[in-house]
Design a protein around this nucleic acid. Sequence first.
DNA 1: TCCTTATTGCAACTGACTTTCAAATTATAG
DNA 2: CTATAATTTGAAAGTCAGTTGCAATAAGGA
Lengths: 154, 154
Amino acid sequence: MPLPETEIPGRLQAELMSRGLRMTRQRRTILSVVETAKQHLDASQLLRRARRLDPQIDRVTVYRTLGLLKRHGLIDELDLMHMQGEKHFYERRPQRDHIHMACLRCGKITEFESDLFDRLKGQIQRDCRFHIVVTRLEIGGYCAQCRSTDQAQD
Amino acid sequence: MPLPETEIPGRLQAELMSRGLRMTRQRRTILSVVETAKQHLDASQLLRRARRLDPQIDRVTVYRTLGLLKRHGLIDELDLMHMQGEKHFYERRPQRDHIHMACLRCGKITEFESDLFDRLKGQIQRDCRFHIVVTRLEIGGYCAQCRSTDQAQD
DNA sequence: TCCTTATTGCAACTGACTTTCAAATTATAG
DNA sequence: CTATAATTTGAAAGTCAGTTGCAATAAGGA
């Protein structure tokens, strides 16, 4: 009879376990934060949320877990045009790549999928004989809302 | 009768002067390094080269000049997939945007222009009503050469 | 040339991330 | 249910890239 689990194992956890990695209490906590995040979080935000679930977690463990997920291609690292310092943001790798648009005025991040983007990647793989592992398309500019409420923009 | 100039004023210098910025010896030196660079240079490489022309230049001045050029849209800042730490690389803004491909094995950076990329940007401006100021498309993967000489790749 | 303002250089600082290493924990073998 | 071997963790110190404060200096117009 199965014991009640403190955490419902998510896809990230299942992925890591299937690759033979040890599942510690800290890892489970950090993975659950990454899984349930509704926006792009940076390392310190992830740490704060993980600590709400397990106050003992250290930030090195967060960095190490993020590195692990990155190496296994399970999360993507974003710069979001470095609008708030040099920190990085993370999101679970989606099935289909998308573009991140960052509004230089209000800071809003918009995601956009496009067939043209998929075709562009195909062209690169073919024409350059380049095997794509990870892509990052970030665009800085002014969103529709800021364009209509502000005159002074580039 | 014009005095002999130590530096032939380049396009970056002309641009900054036309915008009413003061042209100092240090700026002229840094601009000339940026203008004549044949590869993507980071701040410390730029400093080293600038110091060969003027040993007194401080690294803060390099950072401030890069910030100035960035704000004026005269150079683009690249991450090149953060393959060598978190530093940034710089290049003069080209007339036509291009893609940077970074080989995760040999580190080679390849540039690629594409009509599909131009069309993708047009689509974003139209469909998202987003006014594009700067784009950064970086791709990590394996170049043609590394694909044929190495079996162990992602 | 003088004068105002922008720019520089130094030193100290910051923030994000990494390394080191002993102690704790995990998965596995018995 | 141990014992064991290997992985993972946390705490502290360190690194690296870039920034800030401020007094001294230099640019460019009057």
